[in-house]
Amino acid sequence: MPSARASLRHVRGLRLMADSTHSDGSSEISDEPYGTTSADLAKRVLAGDIDAFEPLYRAQSSVVYALCLRMSGDTTRATELTQSVFVRAWERLGSFRGDSSFGTWLHRLAVNVVLENLRSDNRRSARVVTDADSLKLPDAAIADSPDERLDIDAAISRLPPGARVAFVLHEIEGYSHQEISTLTGLATGTVRAQVFRARQLLIKALS
C-alpha cells in the first residue's frame, strides 16, 4: 500500500518537524520524543535505507530552502541548491557524528554548498564581486515599487550578490564578520563593507 506508506512517512516527518520548532524559531530535530532521533535515522541511512533520509529532509527542507532562497535571491536557483544540499548531505552523512544536532550540521553544510555554487556562478559569468564592485552598483538595485519596499525578503533578493550573501549570513544567520571571511575567502574589511552597503540599500528600500 504505497499511499499508506507515504502517509506514515509524512506523519513521521511532520512529528519531527513539530519537535524541531523551538519558541525562538531555531530549527533542530529533537533527540528525545518518539524514539527516532536524527542520529538513529542517520545510522539507518548509512546502512543503506534511503527512505530513512526522508524524515530528515521533511524536517529541514524549509529551513534549507529559506537559506538558499535568501542567499541566491532566486526561486529556481534556490530549488536547485536545496536539492544539491540534501544530496550532498546524504553523501557526507558519514561525517555527522551526532555531536551537534543534525540541523546545525546541515546548516553549515548548506552554507558551504551555496557559497561553492555562487562562486562557480561568478566564475562562469567572469564577474568577480569585489568590495569596490558592490559599492559601484546603482541604487536601482532596489526596486521602487511601493509593494516591494514593504517586503524585506524581496528587497534582500534584489541586493547585489556579494552584499546579499554577507548580509544574510551576518544579520539573519548570525555569523560574525570573521566567520564570513573564513567561509567566503574575502577579507574581513570587505565583508564589513558588504554588510554596510546592504544595510544602506535596505534602509533606503524600506523608507
Partner: peptide
C-alpha cells in the same frame, strides 16, 4: 526562518 519550497523536492532527491 522557514519557507516552503514551491514543490516537493524529495522525489528528485
Amino acid at each position: 526562518r522557514r519557507i516552503e519550497a514551491p514543490l516537493d523536492l524529495w522525489p528528485a532527491i
